[in-house]
Amino acid sequence: IDSVHVVAISAGGPSGISFASHYPERVNTLTLQSAVTKEWLTPKDTEYKMGKILFRPPLEKWMWKLISYLNNAFPRLMFQAMSPQFSTLSFQRIKSMMDEKDIEAFRKMNSRQRSGEGFLLDLSQTAAISSKELQAISCPVLIMQSVYDGFIDKSHAHYAKEHIPDAVLCLLHSWGHLIWLGKEAAETDRIILEFLES
C-alpha cells in the first residue's frame, strides 16, 4: 500500500500524528476523532495509576474478560454504568440521544476489546507529542470532537487546530467521546465522507 487515509481515534491520536508527521508521502489525509493531541494522563492522575495496574499484562486479559462477561449479560446496565466516563451529559440526556442499535454496538465493542500492552503504550506516548510534529503535518487534516466529550478534553481538538497548518476543526453535538454512536452518528459519517471525497 503506497499511501493511506489515516483515522486516529482517542489515544490513537499520537500514533496517527507521528505517522503523518514522519511519512508525509504515505498519508493522503489525517482524521483525528476525539483524539489525544498533547500530553494527556500523567503519573499524578488517578486514571493513570489505575490504568497502570488494571491494564498491565497479564491482568488486562482477565479485566477485559470480566468486562465482556458483564457487558454481554447486562448490556443496558453496563452502558449506563460506563457512559458517564464518555460524556459530560446526564444519563437521561445520553439515553435520549441513543437508539437500541447503539446499545448493541457498544456491547459488541466492549465484548471484543483487548488492549494487550496497548494502553500502557498509549500512556507513554501521550507525553511524547510535540507541537513540532503537529506543525510538520502537510496533508489535509480533519479534527472531530464532541462538545460533550467526557474522556478527552476539548482542549486537545483546539490544540491540534492551532498547530496543524490548514486543519479543519469540526465540533459535534453528539452524545460524547464515541462519535460514531448515537443519533448524530449519520452526521459524523457525512462529514467524514465529504472530507475524504474532497
Rank of each mutant, 00 (worst) to 15 (best):
D149F: 13
L120S: 01
M109N: 09
S146R: 05
Y48T: 04
S10C: 10
Q125M: 12
I53Y: 14
S115R: 09
E162P: 03
I67W: 11
V147L: 14
I17V: 15
E25Y: 05
T46Q: 14
I9V: 13
R112H: 10
I67S: 09
M97T: 07
K44I: 06
L41C: 04
S138L: 00
W64P: 05
E187Y: 03
H163A: 04
E25I: 02
S15Q: 09
R114I: 07
Q135P: 00
W40H: 08
V141A: 07
L77E: 05
P14T: 10
K61I: 08
H5P: 00
V7Q: 02
S87H: 04
I179T: 12
L89Y: 03
F74Y: 15
H163T: 06
S3F: 00
R26I: 02
M98W: 09
P57M: 01
S130H: 14
L169C: 10
M78S: 12
T37E: 06
W180M: 02
V27F: 02
R190E: 12
M50S: 12
Q92D: 09
S111D: 07
H156P: 01
L77G: 06
W40T: 04
L178N: 00
I67P: 07
G116M: 04
Q80C: 10
A81W: 11
E47Y: 13
S130T: 15
K154N: 15
A81I: 09
E25V: 00
M82A: 11
Q125E: 12
L193E: 12
A128S: 09
E184N: 09
K44V: 09
R190W: 06
I1F: 03
S155F: 02
H158F: 10
A185W: 00
A128G: 00
I143F: 14
T31Y: 05
S21V: 13
S68D: 11
L89H: 01
D2S: 09
I191G: 09
S174H: 04
R26T: 06
K95G: 00
L77K: 15
F79W: 13
I164P: 06
I192P: 04
A167S: 15
L32G: 03
S10R: 01
L41A: 13
S10P: 03
L121Y: 03
F195W: 10
I179E: 10
T188I: 03
Y69H: 11
A20L: 01
K49I: 14
A105D: 08
N72M: 08
R190F: 06
A157I: 14
L66Q: 13
L134S: 02
G116A: 14
R114C: 07
V6A: 03
L89D: 01
A167I: 14
I192K: 01
P43N: 01
D45P: 01
W62D: 08
L134I: 02
D149M: 12
G13N: 08
D166I: 05
P58N: 10
V147S: 10
A160Q: 10
R107S: 15
F91D: 02
S34G: 15
I192T: 04
M97G: 07
C170K: 15
R190D: 09
V147I: 14
F86W: 13
E133T: 08
S115N: 13
L142I: 07
S87F: 07
N28C: 04
I164M: 11
D166Y: 12
S146N: 08
P24C: 11
L77A: 09
E133S: 10
E194A: 15
S174T: 11
C170D: 13
E60H: 07
L89G: 00
P84G: 06
T46V: 14
